[in-house]
Write a protein that binds this DNA or RNA. Structure first.
Lengths: 339, 339
DNA sequence: TTGTAGGCGTTATCAT
DNA sequence: ATGATAACGCCTACAA
């Protein structure tokens, strides 16, 4: 009783198969590319469905293959002021990755301890995997997803955990930028760092140091100031005395203070001293004297995260840790004179 | 050959039905609430699935009911500086609405003329409807969705189109805030408006005027300045001469200029003149003298949009135009002395 | 290379 | 009030 040829109705594989006088298995194979089909038959099918504008019903495909072709992105409801662009870029990036591989991106919003939204997604198996951005302070989400056997990838986290993660290659970036400065300032480059016990600060220092090594030089530790926010004036005194004309700040907060202090002192930037930051922010860009800094493209970062997740879902076995290259944004506090 | 009782395996309605010695139809009815089931039976089923932590497979449900229980949100890839918080709040708001009614939120990113992402969503029928935020400059999306018979709702658009939309009730808000000022400034309230040919400007004026009417007063048109950015100094001269001590600016741009000009002239705010804006922005909040203004909560707005869309999907027939109330954020440029 | 038939886990339509 | 059974549209052994 289902043997009427209905062309005008909703188009399904059945309809296509009948109109083309083949079985729907053949149609399915032609579309998915899995299973052998005669070249000629496949082309015929493909051309036909293209002319029809046919798209397989994703829900049916999901049910049959027990795969949703959805990936979730977890973002926090509220965030520190200025956090919105970061999360929006994460969403854009992940969506770019999903789109390329025929996945959709669905949202999980967590509002400070309330994971209902995420749980519905996971428990209802409405996604195949997740990308975590931030907001999992205590690792609760990570352990939850583990026990639920739900694949996930972390963005911008540099933890030693045994999880898939993707971060910017800060060490490499710091090395590159420092190397660039060393060419400009043969007498050396000073470093105004944060607390020594922070992973990220040590990582940046390593990159900084590596540039010296690669250039056949040695770091002058008397020009490396840890926890420099505390005794900034003192540090600046030493730097100005030392004769170097380049200084790197490990993040934007420190850097803004440095720029302010130098302004107070009437030290011209970049004339007397060139300044860069190992971490970018809008404030650095719109500063009085715009500051050259190491930049992380969140969209690229999160697109890689999405790609990584889908690789995992596709059964490939990628590395746990992955890195996205940083780039240097040259602004007037340190110009790329090399061109 | 499917008659084995497997409890340990994946739990489905079949398993539940067998374990409970009822048919899966009954289980389905108990869960959905549709179709009559004995109170006792239903409770038994409900309690059992709760103890199991069972959640129906959403893909199967989607296929059977040809409803995805997904709603899409369209956001632009790039946006004017400062746009990110708006779009993020839209996503949060819509997700809040979906969550409450057991929908998921999926993303459609459009990057300046590239609608691939949206088309995949629509063409693959991976969503039941869409919420449009902005970026549909020329109405292309609207007409596309119409011809695809895909339900949608517009956020923050005040168009006369025959489409579902939700906007902030600016007229009402302007009226309320003006009324509040009139109580403070019996001699009247001046208005520094934008171009007269803009819908939104006229709307704000209407609210402003309505406050006068309700108070049994008449608008002094010599204190209403259209396109006031052009001849601000002149306008301020007249206002200061007039003796009124309250002025409303129709948006944040104008308002910031006014605040700056008044500062230059040494006019104390709110001492000599009280100032409000009919449109809020972060700059108003962090201004030298923070400015009282009409505020639209994007999250609330978009949550209403989500709700509206789901109402439509549920076959209810809501009004085309819906409004979210504005609220007044009292800051020091005009204090809520009554409160 | 191609086709047949059964299954994915629900919902909906009939009966009973 | 409850149950059997057929969709829903696609995927995939298994067969031919």
């Amino acid at each position: 009783m289902n043997n009427r040829l209905r062309n005008s109705d909703k188009i399904t594989m059945d309809v296509i198969a009948q109109n083309l006088q083949v079985s729907k298995t053949t149609v399915s194979r032609a579309i998915s590319g899995k299973g052998r089909v005669g070249r000629e038959t496949r082309d015929r099918v493909l051309k036909y469905i293209a002319s029809l504008g046919y798209k397989p019903n994703s829900m049916a495909r999901a049910l049959a293959g027990s795969k949703t072709y959805n990936i979730g992105v977890v973002i926090p409801d509220t965030d520190e002021r200025g956090g919105a662009p970061f999360f929006k870029d994460c969403l854009i990036g992940v969506t770019a990755a999903s789109a390329k591989r025929d996945y959709e991106t669905v949202l999980a919003v967590i509002s400070d301890g309330n994971y209902n939204n995420l749980e519905r997604l996971v428990n209802g198996r409405r996604v195949d995997g997740l990308v975590l951005t931030r907001g999992d302070k205590n690792g609760k989400i990570v352990s939850y997803l583990r026990e639920q056997a739900m694949p996930f990838v972390l963005i911008g986290r540099n933890s030693d955990d045994d999880v898939y993660q993707i971060d910017s290659d800060q060490k490499d970036g710091c090395c590159e930028l420092t190397a660039r400065m060393l060419r400009e300032s043969p007498k050396g480059v000073a470093l105004l760092s944060g607390p020594k016990d922070m992973d990220v600060e040590r990582l940046r220092y390593e990159g900084y140091a590596q540039a010296f090594t690669l250039a056949g030089l040695k770091v002058d530790e008397s020009l490396v100031f840890w926890d420099s926010e505390k005794k900034l004036d003192e540090a600046l005194d030493k730097i100005l005395e030392s004769g170097v004309n380049c200084v790197a700040c490990s993040d934007d907060i420190i850097c803004l203070k440095v720029m302010e202090a130098l302004k107070q002192r009437g030290v011209s930037v970049p004339g007397r001293l060139q300044v860069v930051s190992f971490f970018d922010s809008e404030n650095l860009e719109s500063n009085d004297v715009p500051v050259t800094s190491l930049h992380v493209d969140t969209k690229v970062l999160s697109q890689k995260a999405g790609d990584l997740l889908i690789d995992v879902l596709d059964g490939k076995n990628p590395d746990l840790c992955n890195y996205a290259k940083c780039s240097v944004l040259y602004r007037s506090s340190f110009r790329n004179n090399a061109g």
